[in-house]
Design a protein around this nucleic acid. Structure first.
Length: 597
RNA sequence: GCCCCGGUAGCUCAGUUGGAUAGAGCAACUGCCUUCUAAGCAGUAGGUCAUGGGUUCGAAUCCCGUCCGGGGUACCA
């Protein structure tokens, strides 16, 4: 039981004894004492005034006296306005340190046979262009949320739905046939996803030119868009694909394989992975069957032109198309099929979709449709809706060439890390290979932290003109502190100082030391909160606070040259624990820690 | 039009279920390396929490209106 739980029930007891009433659990508000006041934990007494019928000061004093008399850890107290500030005994905080060290998985819960199965879908790329900054946010969030759920004792299946079929990939295929000149990743040395993406751009260029030409000839714009030769070819290609035309399917497989190879490389660099991958080309037919079953069962209806619709007006939504008049499927059709397949393949307790907030409506509808199709889990789908990454010029648009490419960005970050390290003259002790790996760790740490520290729900801004910071509230700042700690621990080992198994409970600790200990004590709560709210940002901000406080301690106190051996040992053990907590916190964000930097 | 989300320092962001005098970082200015890593520490300056009401012991936080920005809205994904 931690101190908050102890205090919580002691307060309830106090109120019962003093004023003879049983408070609602949430009316007992315990919080960390603000640093301008004396004390460690503060109870807000306002909610009890009605029952105490005394002034805030008097009520606080009475409760304080009760707690001091009945809870060992409460050393003293003071009351300011309606706030009861409790001073907790130092040895309580030292015990927190002991517990944190004893437990290798401090703060996290292990998976067991009762664990819930959570499937997390993220990434979901189209196979006609490389990944960009938007995907980076998606991937990092998806990965981190998965790790956080695991740390809360859940069994997580990470999945991806690859949108590998449709008009978009046909456009790239047409472009390859017409203007590709037999290019392959091998003979051009271009990464496969970029090659296919370039072809997509090539297609768009010709398509636009054709539209303009038609319009100049007097064709109305809408008709021009529909009748341009390139788009007609792409449509034909799609029909051929659906008809399983061997040549078309071969080319499709070939070009997709280029893309997958490219994606794999990007995913590897980013440090994200998947347990299972679904492909739209496998799932859309299942979705189609489901929709047609829905028509037979009268859940959906057919228009005169054969298009299929769901009427959701009674659910407060609109009418939604599920199959086009030519019988082809839409995004929604495919998602129905994918969901069904997943629930067949796994015993999913919770399905989480990491998808941008522009699709809020889509998932609202998906949930209702699955429910109508008779799937009890339909209502339980959770759309983890995150905000978009914007540029100073506004939204990223692939057609206007304003997307920030994922590979380019990561490469650039590594260069910045390299330049900075060289400028600072660090890492001389490492081999070339280790040095390069360290640059990568730092660069990715900066990028990941930059993305993950902000509230996922909010839109965020990325300015390509300014490189992502490496100082201040950043990933490298946290990594640096970790590296410093490892350095101290190495020095201790060199001096043959062994880490004691238990810190001396009787030493007196400084304010800075206590702040660090308090922060460490919060880690389990942070992991739980991050899990409950699906929020990597909570973890990121915690790590920052911890590191900031540790750095202040580090600056003010000498560790290896402490005046007494038991104080030195305590500080070493404290440092080691901070290192461990930083590492496990940052691991939840997918950020690695360098041993030196 | 209708629906959803947002607006906190010059910039980027924190701010737990309503709690004390709204916090960081960047940018600017000033100090601190002979001693465990200065990618650090300390300090100065910077705010009508978009705006007007309401709810109450107490509102950046909850409710209503207004302004501004973003997203969605029946054959794109």
């Amino acid at each position: 039981m931690n101190i908050e739980q102890v205090l919580h029930s002691a307060v309830a007891e106090a109120l019962k004894n003093l004023y003879n009433f049983e408070p609602a659990s949430k009316s007992i508000q315990l919080q960390i004492t603000r640093k301008d006041f004396e004390g460690d934990i503060t109870l807000v007494v306002f909610p009890f005034l009605k029952h105490s019928r005394k002034s805030p000061e008097e009520t606080g004093k009475q409760i304080g006296e009760y707690l001091q008399g009945n809870v060992d850890e409460v050393r003293s107290f003071n009351v300011i306005k309606g706030f009861l500030n409790l001073v907790i005994a130092d040895n309580y905080w030292i015990r927190v340190l002991k517990n944190a060290r004893k437990d290798d998985a401090y703060g996290t819960k292990q998976e067991d046979e009762n664990s819930r199965v959570i499937m997390v879908e993220y990434s979901s790329p189209n196979t006609n262009k490389p990944l960009h900054l938007g995907h980076i946010r998606n991937n990092l969030l998806g990965y981190s949320i998965s790790e956080i759920q695991k740390a809360n004792g859940n069994k997580v299946v990470k999945t991806n739905i690859v949108n590998d079929r449709g008009i978009h990939i046909c456009k790239s295929m047409v472009a390859w046939k017409k203007w590709g000149e037999g290019k392959t990743p091998e003979n051009t040395g271009t990464k496969g996803d970029h090659l296919v993406g370039d072809l997509y751009v090539e297609f768009d260029k010709h398509y636009k030119a054709e539209i303009k030409e038609l319009i100049d000839k007097g064709v109305p714009p809408k008709e021009a868009e529909a009748k341009a030769p390139s788009i007609l070819e792409a449509r034909e290609m799609l029909l051929k694909w659906e008809a399983r035309d061997p040549e078309t399917v071969d080319l499709w497989k070939r070009m997709n394989s280029w893309v997958y190879k490219g994606f794999d490389e990007t995913y590897r660099k980013m440090g994200v992975d998947f347990d299972t991958i679904y492909y739209e080309s496998d799932t859309y037919l299942v979705g189609k069957e489901e929709v047609l079953r829905g028509v037979e069962e009268g859940i959906f209806y057919k228009e005169e032109d054969d298009s299929v619709w769901a009427d959701l007006t009674e659910d407060g939504l609109d009418k939604k198309i599920l199959l086009r008049s030519d019988g082809t499927s839409v995004y929604m059709t495919q998602d129905i099929g994918t969901a069904k397949m997943r629930y067949n393949d796994y015993s999913i307790d919770k399905m989480v979709y990491v998808v941008g907030n522009e699709q809020n409506y889509h998932f609202q509808v998906l949930s209702v449709l699955l429910d109508k199709l008779g799937y009890t889990w339909g209502k339980d789908l959770f759309h983890f809706s995150y905000g978009m990454v914007e540029l100073p010029s506004g939204k990223m648009k692939s057609r206007e060439g304003t997307v920030v490419d994922a590979d380019d960005l990561m490469e650039e970050m590594i260069n910045v890390a390299r330049n900075m390290a060289e400028e600072l003259g660090k890492l001389d002790a490492l081999t070339a290979e280790e040095t390069e790996k360290t640059f990568e760790i730092i660069a990715l740490g900066a990028l990941k932290y930059f993305i993950l520290k902000v509230d996922p729900k909010k839109n965020m801004l990325f300015n390509p003109e300014e490189s992502i910071d490496f100082n201040g509230n950043t990933g490298p700042f946290i990594q640096y502190t970790y590296a410093r700690i490892q350095s101290v621990l190495r020095k201790a080992a060199e001096k043959n100082i062994n880490l004691v198994s238990d810190a001396d409970e009787n030493i007196s600790i400084s304010e800075k030391e206590k702040l660090v200990l308090k922060r460490i004590s919060l880690f389990p709560d942070i992991v739980a909160e991050a899990g409950k709210n699906y929020s990597p940002a909570v973890v990121a901000n915690f790590c920052y606070e911890l590191v900031k406080e540790y750095n202040q301690f580090y600056h003010d106190h000498s560790i290896l040259n402490a005046s007494e051996n038991n104080i030195r040992d305590f500080r070493l053990v404290l440092s080691e624990a901070v290192g461990k907590v930083i590492k496990s916190g940052m691991t939840l964000l997918g950020i690695e820690m360098p041993e030196r930097m």
